[in-house]
Each structure stands twice: as C-alpha cells, then as structure tokens.
Amino acid sequence: MFRIPCPYCGLRNVSEFRHVGGRRARPDVRTATPAQWRAYLYEQDNIAGWSAESW
C-alpha cells in the first residue's frame, strides 16, 4: 500500500483517499460551450508516468 502526504494530517494510507482524476482547469460555467464542458467532463490525459492528480 502506498502512502500519500496529506497537507493536513501527514502521511496516510492510500485507502483513506479517493482518486478524483488528473488536474484540469474547470471552464467557466457561464461561458463554456457544450464541447468545452464535455471535454472537461470526459477527457483525461491518462499519462503513463508521473502526473499531477487530485485525490
């Protein structure tokens, strides 16, 4: 089991976290086109290697 350094509670087991996805900028809801919004919802970079993720 790998461990994740949490900024609030220190080094914790991965099972205490939930994976959210790659870090992406959320488009502005008021101006985003449907295509932009769906790209934000569905598309992942899916990198095979080091990547920045939200947990």
């Binding site: 598309e43 992942q44 899916n46």
Partner: peptide
C-alpha cells in the same frame, strides 16, 4: 489513449 494521441486524437479513457 496513448496510441490515439500519436494521431492527435483524444480519447475519454482512463487506464
């Protein structure tokens, strides 16, 4: 998704 990226196509896939 990596093979598709070689052709410039983005797939909504997470491995």
């Amino acid at each position: 998704s990596l093979v598709a990226a070689l052709a410039g196509v983005r797939l909504p896939v997470s491995t």
